[in-house]
Design a protein around this nucleic acid. Sequence first.
DNA 1: TTGACGATTAGCT
DNA 2: GCTAATCGTCAAC
Length: 217
Amino acid sequence: MAGTHDPAPGPTPRLTHAFFERPVLEVAPDLLGALVSHRGVTIRLTEVEAYDGRNDPGSHAYRGLTPRTGVMFGPPGGLYVYLSYGMHWCANLVCGSEGTASAVLMRAGEVVGGIEVARERRGGVVDRDLARGPARLGQALGLSREQNGLDVTAPDGPFEVLAAPYPAPAPVRSGPRVGVSGAGGDGLQYPWRFWLDGDPTVSAYRGAKPRRARGQR
DNA sequence: TTGACGATTAGCT
DNA sequence: GCTAATCGTCAAC
């Protein structure tokens, strides 16, 4: 296939505790182009979303500390994995100082390593769709509840996050988040989604779901 | 204990 | 474009 993005010429360093300890709005755009690697698959991030714990109605941590959100309140560099809609595993990287409960959702990326493993996990979809969308990305990486709470800055940890091997080839853009109730519906706007402009693996924008009440009709 | 909902995706009209 | 699938989490009773 056309190699629009050649692999890094050499190894890149694993991102550190200090990297993730900064404010989430600084960390999120810096994660674009970074490489995440787990169980034989490496993905270059092309789209992320920031969530600001307590101040953010769209965040799982908005209502405070619960058994599920405990990882978000922990130290930066933690991996917060949650189940969406009862069937999809999605992953966040905890940011900011401990207790802030802010995190960056990894929304989409391009598989740059272990593509055959990713194809097997994703069931033969076209390569562009291997990690286009948060749940697809999680599936391509082979994530599940077991990875919740991992420290991605641990030198020998199973989940790696490596610095971008080269400057982003496309400009970083930002805009409203996807599918978050409250981000638009009630007038609140958070331009906290970041992506690489024009990248084919970036998911299509959709506003918050206007679902009508179920069990009614 | 119960009921409602969700940071989604796939499939059908 | 619209809806079902599917189950963990959380708030309320």
